[in-house]
Design a protein around this nucleic acid. Sequence first.
DNA 1: TTTTATATCACACAATTGTGTGAGAAAATC
DNA 2: GATTTTCTCACACAATTGTGTGATATAAAA
Lengths: 213, 213
Amino acid sequence: MEKIKVLLADDHQIMLDGLQAIFAKDDSLQVVGTARNGLEVLEFVKKEPVDVLLLDLQMPVMDGLETTMHVLKSHPDIKVILLTTNDEGSIITSIFKLGATGYLLKNASKEYLIQGIKDAYEGKKVLSAHLTEKMIESLTEKPKVRKGEIPKITKREIEVVKLIAKEFTTQEIADALFVSTNTVATHKRNLFVKMDVKNSVGMIKKAVDWGLI
Amino acid sequence: MEKIKVLLADDHQIMLDGLQAIFAKDDSLQVVGTARNGLEVLEFVKKEPVDVLLLDLQMPVMDGLETTMHVLKSHPDIKVILLTTNDEGSIITSIFKLGATGYLLKNASKEYLIQGIKDAYEGKKVLSAHLTEKMIESLTEKPKVRKGEIPKITKREIEVVKLIAKEFTTQEIADALFVSTNTVATHKRNLFVKMDVKNSVGMIKKAVDWGLI
DNA sequence: TTTTATATCACACAATTGTGTGAGAAAATC
DNA sequence: GATTTTCTCACACAATTGTGTGATATAAAA
């Protein structure tokens, strides 16, 4: 029987080594390569066939979401499973909308992970047990912002978020973007609502979680 | 020859599984147990002998620093190696001051990690190559806060940081801690200076980096 | 083409944050 | 026992943030 070809991507070498060691024991999977960031993933899939891509959501250079998008554009048959530390439920729907096959937390067990890869290979969607609840929650909860959709943060808003993260004041942001402080205040106001936070601190924490910055 | 008894602690099961798989291949070490947080570590070392403790810096319930302190108080012979994602150089000196033996980044290779454990067992200090530079930097750089020392954040201050991260206002923090808003403001003021940031946003970002929250 | 989303700005005001300075008491450390 | 650190609080004031409401122009989508 043909082994499932798995490509691993994570910015931590130890994680790669660990996953590789785990998968080495299973006869039905084979790790065909590893990558330290999204760019390396793109290069690899260009050259070698891959069945399942196990992708860390948090990566420098090119993160999991971005990588997923690019990989699926050129190789729609590859099953992508996002691996992540955080359990921010609100990102799930956008992941599946992007075309990813699975979303697993890093505190899943190795058995769960291996099963997940096999399931993904067979075309099933894969989701951490902890997340299934959150997913259902997010679908059934009264829409604070809108029905089931994740608030879309605009380009300009992301610029503002990034500057806030750099400890810029509203005035400084306004100067940097060549707009009035009123405008910046409006962007912040909108961000608070979209991200469902109370202040800049909450915003930056969530922005980090979401991989916005 | 006696194998080196290694205890692993990390809040991510995958990481534990991975490390275990890596170490399984090496004859000179033996993983005698795993823990998901600091409390489990303390319970384990109370019952079983441990040579080297490989400890994730970021953990819920009881983090790496706190755990190190408690473990060394009761078992000063255990060699503690902190494993971490971040490369915030400024935390290093405080780690060694606490009595830890090593500090490795998760993007070290498995060979490096295994060698590190062996070195630690023999009483050598262990430090990621990437960090050695930073360490030297931090010792030679002009003291922004004070000479070569890392600002020590107090317990009370950490409580304040955590509440700020939860989007509490100064008033709410004061109520939660049963102190006046003036006191909270003072704690914040001191934190800004110690952490070398301009506002709460910067503080929370750095606190996350440092593994304070 | 009509609607929707994005980006811009104003004005006013309340709420909160951050700063400067000084100081007392208790706990930990030397 | 002396010293340092930690935790506490006060008062005053400047700076910044956050909120409510309304409006215009442009671009994109339906």
